[in-house]
């Protein structure tokens, strides 16, 4: 081949090579970009779907709790009140010894009635909205102390914060889940809930001195999973850490907007 042919060959070869590279690059760049876009869209829709699913699950749960609360308040509460009234009527026609017995029974019934009403309040989100998060949690703490499960206390640090009613309900249910977990598994003697209010973040710390737990996320039970999923729903973050000397500390970081 002469010199001109070789130079032509090189020019055309380079041209082809460039064309090939451009085609390959354009194809793969476009397809990969589209692929990543599809993947991110799929993830977004999955997250949205999971949130909607969780929201509907919580909504159903709230309906159930409300129904239970009404049943406790309107039916069982009424029956207990009527029983109390009837005992009061009977007590007038009995002997002194029986009257004392009836008085003791009435006292027990009154306590049960009060507990049922408190339980009804804590189950019903409507009454909770009326009270506010701090008051509702303080009722729960009082209930724990009254039942002598643990020595419980509520601590406030920082200013009062404004949180929407829907988010307050979810935060309250998270705290209830922490309490329920502590009662069921921790065998604790002390329990505290701390509300820590900072300019951009509201932190809830639930701490007990019980058995603690394995912090491997794979070992999370339904309770802890519920805490995490509920927190995720309102954009809050959760942290589980062991307490020195035994116990578990659950922190919920709720961003204030």
């Amino acid at each position: 081949m002469d010199q001109i042919v070789i130079s032509d060959l090189i020019v055309v070869f380079v041209f082809i090579l460039i064309t090939l590279v451009i085609i390959i690059f354009t194809l793969f760049y476009t397809f990969n970009k589209r692929r990543l876009y599809f993947i991110s869209e799929k993830q977004k829709s999955r997250i949205k779907y999971e949130k909607e699913l969780e929201a509907s699950r919580i909504e159903n749960q709230e309906h159930l709790l409300k129904a239970l609360s009404w049943e406790l308040h309107d039916n069982i509460g009424q029956l207990l009140s009527v029983s109390n009234l009837q005992l009061s009527m009977i007590s007038e026609d009995v002997t002194e010894k029986d009257r004392n017995l009836i008085a003791d029974t009435r006292e027990i019934l009154s306590k049960v009635l009060e507990d049922v009403r408190n339980l009804s309040k804590s189950l019903n989100a409507d009454s909770f909205i009326f009270l506010g998060l701090a008051k509702a949690v303080s009722f729960e703490i009082e209930r724990l102390n009254r039942l002598r499960f643990v020595d419980a206390k509520l601590i406030f640090e920082g200013k009062e914060t404004e949180i929407s009613n829907e988010h307050q309900i979810i935060l309250f249910r998270i705290i209830q889940e922490c309490i329920s977990n502590m009662i069921k598994h921790a065998r604790a003697t002390r329990f505290s809930v701390t509300f820590l209010s900072e300019p951009h973040i509201f932190t809830i710390i639930c701490e007990d001195n019980g058995l603690g737990m394995s912090l491997n996320t794979k070992n999370y039970g339904l309770g802890l999973k519920n805490i995490v999923s509920r927190a995720n729903m309102i954009g809050a973050e959760t942290m589980f850490e062991p307490v020195t000397g035994g116990g578990l500390r659950i922190k919920i970081f709720y961003p204030l907007r």
Partner: peptide
């Protein structure tokens, strides 16, 4: 890449060397 090459060889270049076309 083959279309411009074949057009180029058909119209713009006096094709005496088919070797280039074949090689490409």
């Amino acid at each position: 890449p083959f279309i411009p090459i074949i057009i180029g060889f058909q119209y713009m270049v006096d094709v005496k060397n088919l070797e280039i076309l074949q090689f490409l």
